[in-house]
Design a protein around this nucleic acid. Structure first.
Length: 350
DNA sequence: CAAGCGTGGCG
DNA sequence: TCGCCAAGCTT
């Protein structure tokens, strides 16, 4: 058998497996069916960046119910989109989602090529390729963390990431078929998610095991080789619960950094590199109202919450938000936890 | 190009 | 329990 027939054979076997075992997901057409509309493909791909399928499902349902088309999303106030995204993480995705939707609405529809899609904010190499392949049937080389794992094992690429990315992409190119490249990409991701898993891969169930070099020559679970992780420092900060007439003072975090664009409790300026200064935003007594610990990607924060009742508004931008509907404010998880802590204390819970 | 950027689940 | 991991992008 020649190399090229063996490579086509890999795609054929994988697609046959996919026809039988494809996961049924809300944003996905069944194998052989007409593609879902590009808006749903794009929305799901952005939500799925570094995020599990289980976490995405309820958000995808909420977004498509509230904004059934890219034009509807483009017309939405940005703060509504940010609030709807709250809890899903990586909030630059939501900021870019709005920008991209407005660009697409201005264009009269999604670009239908990988190159065109790549120009939209929030679409990198992976997402542009996947939308081009899945929504538009273009041949594109789609490489996500699943594909990196499957391909590094299939070809026994043991150079550590991220250096191995070039070789992995080249190898993926050689097995990507001209037809059904969208199904092929999704099949690779399903295989990675359910069979060729990071820990304890199910090689006995894998349709590609005959072709897998890592299975022949060594320990597939060893690949891909990843660089060592950095330590996560522990930071200390304070958030301020400022209350007036059953309402709490919320600010909107500025900029593109941590939790940028999200509503939040005011805080004392803590960040990844430094603790907060513990200086309250009002010249009056605050009482301890509990504390929460929350892990971010690159540091952990222990957040002390201190509360006060006040007759005056703090300086600067902000809004009084009714405590009864605080769940609609769209607080990111850290501040959701902090608020829950305050309210639980108040009810006498521990 | 290394670092910044969330969150929840699982072994 | 806690480190690792998940359909990455931006600067």
């Amino acid at each position: 058998m020649t190399a090229s027939t063996r490579r086509q054979d890999i795609a054929d076997r994988l697609l046959a497996w996919y026809d039988e075992h494809a996961r049924d997901l809300p944003w996905r057409a069944r194998p052989g069916d007409a593609p879902k509309d590009p808006y749903r493909v794009w929305l799901s791909e952005v939500m799925l960046q570094q995020t599990t399928v289980a976490a995405v499902k309820p958000y995808f349902a909420k977004f498509t119910d509230t904004w059934p088309s890219v034009d509807a999303l483009a017309a939405a106030p940005e703060e509504d989109v940010m609030a709807a995204w709250a809890g899903l993480g990586y909030y630059s995705r939501a900021r870019n989602l709005v920008k991209a939707a407005r660009e697409v609405a201005g264009l009269g529809g999604f670009p239908d090529t990988e190159e065109g899609l790549r120009k939209l904010p929030g679409l990198g190499a992976y997402t542009a390729a996947s939308v081009a392949a899945i929504a538009f049937g273009r041949r594109a080389v789609v490489v996500d963390a699943n594909v990196e794992r499957v391909v590094s094992r299939l070809f026994a690429i043991d150079e550590p990431l991220p250096g191995a990315r070039k070789a992995i992409r080249a190898a993926t190119d050689t097995i990507t078929p001209d037809l059904r490249s969208g199904d092929f990409a999704q099949a690779m991701m399903d295989l990675g998610a359910t069979i060729c898993t990071a820990r304890d891969p199910k090689c006995l169930l894998c349709v590609l095991s005959d072709s897998c070099k890592a299975r022949k020559t060594g320990d597939p679970a060893r690949l891909p080789v990843k660089p060592p992780k950095k330590a996560r420092p522990l930071r200390y900060g304070t958030a301020w619960w400022i209350e007036q007439d059953q309402r709490v003072w919320l600010v909107t975090r500025q900029g593109t950094g941590m939790l940028g664009g999200m509503r939040a409790l005011p805080d004392d300026g803590w960040n990844a590199k430094a603790d907060g200064n513990a200086q309250p935003p009002l010249p009056q007594e605050f009482s301890p109202a509990g504390s929460v610990v929350h892990g971010f990607t690159h540091f952990t924060i222990e957040l002390d919450v201190r509360a006060t009742l006040t007759a005056e508004a703090p300086e600067g931008e902000g809004e009084w938000w009714p405590i009864a509907t605080l769940d609609e404010a769209g607080l990111p998880t850290l501040f959701e936890k902090a608020s829950a802590r305050v309210l639980a204390n108040r009810r006498g819970e521990t």
